[in-house]
Design a protein around this nucleic acid. Sequence first.
DNA 1: TAGATTGTTAATCGATTAACAATC
DNA 2: TAGATTGTTAATCGATTAACAATC
Lengths: 213, 213
Amino acid sequence: MKKVSDAVIRRLPKYYRHLAELEREGVEKISSSELSKKMGLNASQIRQDFNCFGGFGQQGFGYYVKVLKGEIQSILGLKNRYNAIIVGMGNIGQALASYDNFAREGFFVLGAFDVSKDLVGRSVKGVSIMPMEQMKGFVEQNDVNLGIICTPEQYAAQTAQMLSDCGVKAIWNFAPIDIQMESTIVENVHLSDSLYILSYRINEQMRLDDTKE
Amino acid sequence: MKKVSDAVIRRLPKYYRHLAELEREGVEKISSSELSKKMGLNASQIRQDFNCFGGFGQQGFGYYVKVLKGEIQSILGLKNRYNAIIVGMGNIGQALASYDNFAREGFFVLGAFDVSKDLVGRSVKGVSIMPMEQMKGFVEQNDVNLGIICTPEQYAAQTAQMLSDCGVKAIWNFAPIDIQMESTIVENVHLSDSLYILSYRINEQMRLDDTKE
DNA sequence: TAGATTGTTAATCGATTAACAATC
DNA sequence: TAGATTGTTAATCGATTAACAATC
């Protein structure tokens, strides 16, 4: 099986979202061309994408929404359970601890860590905040496989190293730097990047308006 | 001037981040090949990207970090001031209201709105929470040009419409749906998408491990 | 002038789209 | 069987990379 391209992988969550919506609406089957209209993609592309993982449709008929959704859920690994910890319980860390949408897809926040003496000992939505020294023990005892970095920028790199040393295999990074590691899978969120792109588009709009005048 | 491709635009914030870091470190000049090593891109690509906006370098020498950073800051529109409101003051809304990194780049949260009687009247980090009915007046009086949607999924679409009706020209959407509008610029964040991609990669890793055995 | 590195054109590569045979 | 729509191969398009002339 040849490697699936990054472009395809990044479309999978979008498929999953739309199929989950169709399922909630009670839609039983859908063709690639109907789905393409709904999602704003090309129908060929949709069929190509699905066929990276072995086709899930029936010729002359289309795709069963429930089947297709289940397959993509499997591919994304959303049928498994993940145990997560949050490092850095500032605003974003606390928001993520309180956000229960993730638990619905199998991501459970079991604990949090912070350097601040004020925060350690407290708990947010049942997630207790522990001192950094207890991280390694906690990770081992609770089979933690996901570390969420919500520290300020300057501590993010060392936090990633620490998580990796503790044996955490995957990192979801909210600090505004690119973390890249040898043996650990990292997904960098870069909230501000998306804000800056929005800003670009606002100004692009204005530049076009200027040109027209 | 021919249209700049989306791929280029999405790299601009990354350039900006790395150049800001170099500036903080006191680096005065950099060549495309040095920058390519630091950022993990191809040097040709970097030069191509910059030349979409008119080259900023000196032949035989390289680029002045300060100049280049300033140019990209301009292109991204980060030298302007933006007035923002947040709609939906749950966990994420409150975290964004408290997050002061954005103010440093010119994005100011002037107010927040929510349907909840419990939240209206309170304030978070100096941002007061108002009832939805006051949105239009507030937007007009305060020259609001950015709306941040942090409502639950099911209210996101109507909130976008409401913001657009109030005259807000750009929307930063944190709800897990794709908002697309005619006359309003939208950037969809999709936090969970990035989590799902991380999940895919964890399982990809395991699939590869299985194959090797 | 010689050396270095940009700006830009040309070549390559990969992703998207079109076309159509396979088949339900 | 006829109609529909997939799965898959082929064509196109655009983005990335390489090459090199321009020039500081």
